[in-house]
Simulated scan of single mutants.
Amino acid sequence: MNKSIYPVKYHIMRMSTVFSLVFPKNKRILFLVRLFTPHIGGVETHVSKLTEQALLDGNTVRIITSQYDPILPYKSRFLLAGNPHLPTDNLFIYRIPNVPLNDSKISITQKVYLRIHVWWWMVRHIFLFLRADIVHIHDIFWWYWPIKIIFPWKKVYVTFHGFEVGSMPTQKAKRVRKLITFFSTGTVAIGAWIAKWYGTKSAIVLYGASDCKVSSARKRSSSILSAVFIGRLEDDTGILAYIDAIKKQKNIQLSIYGEGKYKEKIIRETKKSKNIVYEGVTTDVCTALQQADIACVSSYLSIADALALNIPVIAYATDELKKDYLCSHPAHGSFTIVESKNELESVLKNWKISKKKRKVVSAQNWVKKNTWKYIYLQYKKVWGFS
């Protein structure tokens, strides 16, 4: 362009080019998450779906996670299934070696070594933080402390996903959450219950989403009801209560998917049972739920999957915290919450599939609104760009 003929237009275009270089539309996003795919879990799914949406939006994503299994590569790309058009050239996963799968069972000496090891890894990879426009941490803020000390002015965001399994929040846990909130630019809470139990307020409260679609090939048996449990085989999911209650029901078949401390016990019990089967672990929750008449689930993502498939949900509240967790869900009126084994047995004994189906239908507006794209747009609001 001849700048002598079009001086104003020339300078506007020049300034536009400079502005786009200084403030690029596409961002470089860095996620920190303790476990990531191929490990299976709610946080892993949440970050995976969020990454997928960020890539579709034209951003570059880097993920720092743990190399919990030595077979996993230190650095790799991740091809997100079902989306062949994703720009995976813009995605890299960095794994911190020698990080145990469960760090709650190691000694104090090992915990001290683990912290030094992780912090030193962060310092050696400080270039990842320097290049990032957005740093977002999913629960494990302690990984980030060295970077926070070196660059106290750098913006950092946090998502609080859950609670300490097996116990009520301690005063120490509450103080840590408040400290993290203080040092964060913005926070996201997975559930409104977090504000009550930890005393922290977040900019955005989310409950997850689902990609499940109802299949036209679904078939139902008029005599035997099919129930599916998906989740961790731990106390807080109510798995033992589901098993005890369904054992007494001759017209219900229970399929169990998951892992946890009760895995071996459940395998032994299911060998003796005619109506309870342990299926192992599944990476395809939608398919596992597709043919179910009842979803025995109590996590936000599994509840969202069941509601998306129009499957009635029975969620077991093992304590007051879990009750608040379930009751704070915007669609909690569309599923059944039980608080004891006797109540669970009574609900199953008097189960009316048509009545429960009508209850699930009322959640469809919530399901349609809460897509993973919607979740990503909420994150963009927290980050301050749209």
Score class of each variant (00 low, 15 high):
residue 151 F to E: 03
residue 72 L to F: 15
residue 100 P to H: 02
residue 96 I to R: 00
residue 191 G to P: 04
residue 151 F to W: 10
residue 186 G to I: 15
residue 189 A to D: 14
residue 146 P to G: 02
residue 121 W to E: 07
residue 85 H to P: 00
residue 147 I to N: 03
residue 92 F to Y: 12
residue 126 I to G: 07
residue 153 W to Y: 13
residue 145 W to R: 04
residue 200 T to N: 02
residue 160 F to S: 01
residue 188 V to L: 10
residue 175 R to L: 08
residue 71 I to E: 10
residue 97 P to A: 06
residue 138 H to C: 07
residue 127 F to Y: 13
residue 108 I to P: 01
residue 73 P to C: 05
residue 139 D to N: 14
residue 80 L to E: 08
residue 101 L to I: 09
residue 204 I to Y: 04
residue 181 T to F: 07
residue 70 P to C: 10
residue 194 I to K: 05
residue 150 I to L: 15
residue 148 K to P: 05
residue 152 P to G: 13
residue 128 L to R: 03
residue 139 D to P: 07
residue 175 R to C: 03
residue 158 V to F: 12
residue 153 W to E: 06
residue 112 V to S: 05
residue 118 V to P: 02
residue 173 A to T: 12
residue 171 Q to E: 14
residue 168 M to F: 11
residue 149 I to A: 14
residue 82 G to D: 00
residue 183 F to P: 05
residue 81 A to E: 15
residue 141 F to T: 07
residue 158 V to H: 10
residue 156 V to Q: 11
residue 201 K to M: 11
residue 201 K to N: 14
residue 150 I to V: 14
residue 116 I to V: 13
residue 92 F to N: 12
residue 103 D to L: 00
residue 117 H to D: 03
residue 167 S to R: 15
residue 184 S to C: 10
residue 99 V to A: 01
residue 173 A to Y: 04
residue 156 V to G: 05
residue 187 T to G: 07
residue 137 I to M: 06
residue 119 W to I: 14
residue 117 H to C: 04
residue 163 F to H: 11
residue 117 H to F: 09
residue 156 V to K: 09
residue 84 P to M: 11
residue 204 I to C: 01
residue 179 L to P: 04
residue 126 I to E: 09
residue 185 T to F: 04
residue 133 D to S: 13
residue 149 I to N: 09
residue 135 V to N: 13
residue 102 N to E: 08
residue 108 I to L: 06
residue 205 V to Q: 08
residue 135 V to W: 12
residue 195 A to K: 09
residue 129 F to E: 00
residue 94 Y to V: 06
residue 72 L to Q: 12
residue 179 L to C: 13
residue 99 V to I: 09
residue 182 F to Y: 13
residue 68 Y to L: 08
residue 201 K to P: 03
residue 181 T to S: 11
residue 118 V to Y: 00
residue 112 V to G: 02
residue 91 L to F: 13
residue 141 F to Y: 15
residue 84 P to I: 10
residue 183 F to S: 11
residue 161 H to E: 01
